[in-house]
Simulated assay, not measured.
Amino acid sequence: MSTKLSRASYTIALVGATGSLGREVANVFLTSYKPFFSRVIVTARDTTTAEAKALAEKGAELVLVSAADPLGSFTKAFEGADAVVNVIGSAPNDFKDAIGEAAIKSGAKVYFPSEYGSDHRINDFPGWDDPGWLWKGQHARKYRQLGAGKTKVVALYNGLFLEILINPFFGFDTANLTYTSVGSPDAKTATTAKADIGRALAELTLLSLNPETAASVPDDVHIAGSNVSWRQIRDIVQKVRDELGVEPRGEIKVQGTDLAPFREKLRKEQLEKPKPGPIDHIKVLIAEGKMDFTKNDNELINPGESIWKWKTVEDIVREKGGRV
């Protein structure tokens, strides 16, 4: 902490800070990391929402951006910003591209594009990949080239959001005591709490802005609060529910389904009519071992958990009283 306090105080610009992930990220910068960031600029397409006002009350500087002129308004909003963190969710691609271009035009030293999921660079879905992931890859390549020598572009991959991991659409049916994975139930996935993503972004920003540590930050960063399989999740949930006496009682069954037919069905569906969102692609990636971030950059960001303790699957199961 004392080393960090000796650093200059920076200005951070957050885009998408009123969203689900964005609010958690903004809260980190506005509270525990406030000593390191004298200004926290929050851009919004509507600064009158309850979410925007709540951030302003914590000290955020709200800046209205125009959908009609996103590049001009983002460039002006980012003036004086040392770093730009993009946590925007749904928006037109040209609007999202304007964020990257404005980050570089305004002179920001580091830019985090909106990633926060799988490392789509290793996908093997030729001709039927998720369009959103294809766009993200193009975005990163474009602005790394544009910002070369001026703005460092750092992509952060964290696996699944911990808050939505144990969910029916991933095959977790606790009510009927059955957990079903695509492929082996022993295949692991990274999963990270939203607040921990915020802490990782804050630490990466500080590392990237410090001339002594900037070179240690790779262009593509992997983090994982936990790396867990469906069987391990079952064991955790079973233990907590048994301890707390949660109904319905009984043993949770864990099972896997064949990957090959699931993958082929998805391929045919995507070629015929692409699905909105990559949920089924993610299931395939987990089964293929491509969401297992056992090899990660946790130690660079939070060595020995000396800065904070990563939130785990057991933490969230206990937080919910075993009712997941």
Rank of each mutant, 00 (worst) to 15 (best):
A108K: 08
E57A: 12
I197V: 15
I236K: 00
S114P: 00
A44D: 11
L55S: 03
D82L: 00
T43S: 08
D297L: 05
P168Q: 11
D129P: 05
K34D: 00
N227T: 14
A155H: 06
Y157N: 10
R144V: 11
G137V: 03
E264Q: 03
A102D: 11
R199M: 13
E314S: 00
K136Y: 07
A56P: 01
T192S: 05
D46S: 11
S2V: 15
H139F: 14
D69P: 06
H281C: 09
T178E: 09
V154G: 10
D292N: 15
A155M: 11
V221A: 08
A108N: 10
K136H: 13
S229H: 01
S216W: 06
D219N: 13
A287N: 10
L165P: 01
Q255C: 02
E247C: 00
E57D: 12
A195R: 13
D186R: 07
D94A: 12
K142I: 00
I282Y: 06
F37M: 11
H281N: 09
I233M: 02
N302G: 11
A200T: 03
D297V: 04
P278F: 12
V65P: 13
K273G: 05
V63M: 10
V246C: 01
G289V: 10
L244S: 03
P276G: 12
I286D: 01
S226C: 04
L209V: 08
A60Y: 04
A287R: 04
A214F: 03
E79A: 15
P248N: 06
L71Y: 14
Q145R: 11
L165R: 03
Q145K: 12
L62K: 02
L156S: 08
D46R: 07
V25P: 14
D297I: 02
V63R: 15
A108L: 10
E288N: 07
H222C: 02
K109T: 10
V246A: 01
